[in-house]
Amino acid sequence: MFWVLFLLVAWAGVLWSCTLLVAAAGHAAEPATGSATAHHHDELNLYEAAYLAGGPRRVADLTLLSMERQRRLLLAHTGWATVVDPVGRDAHERSALGAFGPDGQSPVPELRSAVAGDEAVRALADRLGEAGLALPAGSRRSVGEGVRAVRGATLLTLAMAAVSLALPAGGGTTSGMIMAWFSLPLLLGAGCLAIARFEAHPYSRWASPAGRRLLVALDRDRGDAQSLTSVAVRGIRVVTDPGLRAALGYGNRGWIPRQRGH
């Protein structure tokens, strides 16, 4: 009957982690003290929409794509960018241009990191947070930690079930009965993860409930699927040009492209 002890360990882990996630999600869903209710989705600029939908990286991708469409930046499918117009029209563009080397070229991942980590993005996040449209960093961390805890508890339950099946059950207990008991905490953990994933798709990591409502309205009215508004809300996956999509996709897997001759 040692398997009962393993079952209790599994239940303890799942209940604790699910409680942690529910508490974090509930805190994140609380109305903010800002003036979010006074906003309309038409009042969001592209950078604000990009941050709410995808965070700093989305702001960086939008900045680079916007400059490319204005022919002030060339993005090659090899993952390198070349300056055409060295004058930035806003703080985000200036942070991108400041990351170029003396030859006017730079890998796209380095530009993305420069824009995403710039003070302009932090100021944007603070402004949206004060307006009640963006989740505070603490809330994002708490929800992320809750999801990881539930995932870990679910894996622990699987491990406890495997150990229980490997041990002699005794007392007329069958493997089917053991799996039936362990299926309950497994279902609870998997269900909690599924609900969290549904609630988090696609905006809630960065946007508050009020911010998500604005993004849903903006997404509904975005019109042309290739517009910058659509890219801000949906990301680079809506870009149909394979060369641009390849250029902007560099760095997503953790490596920097090499330029021919370097």
Rank of each mutant, 00 (worst) to 15 (best):
G101S: 07
R122W: 04
A196G: 11
V231G: 03
R57H: 09
W80G: 04
A12K: 06
G171N: 05
I256D: 04
S139I: 05
R112C: 11
W3V: 08
R58I: 05
A99T: 02
F100H: 06
G79N: 03
G129K: 09
T174W: 01
V9Q: 04
G26H: 06
T63L: 02
Y51T: 11
H92G: 01
E110Q: 14
P136Y: 00
M179I: 14
G211K: 02
H27Q: 15
R220Q: 13
I236G: 03
T82V: 12
W181Q: 15
S139V: 10
G254W: 08
F198N: 09
A194P: 04
L111W: 00
L46F: 00
L65V: 11
S208I: 13
T82F: 09
L193K: 07
F198H: 12
A153D: 02
S139C: 13
R151S: 15
D103A: 12
R253Y: 06
G261R: 07
A153E: 01
A217T: 07
L156Y: 05
V216I: 14
R220M: 06
S183V: 12
L128Q: 05
V115M: 02
S35T: 13
V83W: 00
A200L: 13
A169H: 05
L7I: 04
A137W: 02
T19D: 08
L186F: 05
P31R: 12
L7Y: 07
A149D: 06
W255N: 09
S227E: 03
A196D: 06
F2H: 14
R222S: 14
L8Y: 01
H262I: 13
A217K: 08
R258M: 11
A116I: 08
G98D: 11
R222P: 07
G261W: 00
A200C: 09
L186D: 07
D85R: 03
L156N: 03
T37Y: 01
S106V: 12
L46S: 02
L186R: 04
R260L: 14
A149G: 12
G172D: 03
D42M: 11
C18I: 14
N45K: 02
T63Q: 01
E110V: 15
E68Y: 10
G176S: 10
L165P: 13
T78W: 00
A91V: 09
A159P: 06
G34T: 09
A166L: 15
L46C: 04
E119W: 07
D224Y: 00
P168K: 01
W16I: 14
D85Q: 07
L193A: 10
R258W: 04
A120L: 09
A225V: 12
A38F: 13
A116W: 02
S175N: 15
W181G: 11
P31W: 07
V216S: 11
R220D: 13
L111T: 09
P86G: 04
F2T: 15
E68F: 10
A180M: 15
G55N: 07
C192Y: 04
A24K: 05
R89M: 08
T82W: 03
R72Y: 01
A123Y: 05
L21N: 10
V87H: 06
D118E: 06
A120R: 05
S113R: 14
E30R: 15
E68Q: 15
S204L: 15
N45G: 10
D42C: 11
A81P: 06
L158S: 03
R151D: 14
G235P: 07
T78H: 00
L193V: 13
E68M: 12
Y47V: 14
A153W: 00
P242N: 00
V22Y: 06
A25H: 08
T33I: 11
V87D: 04
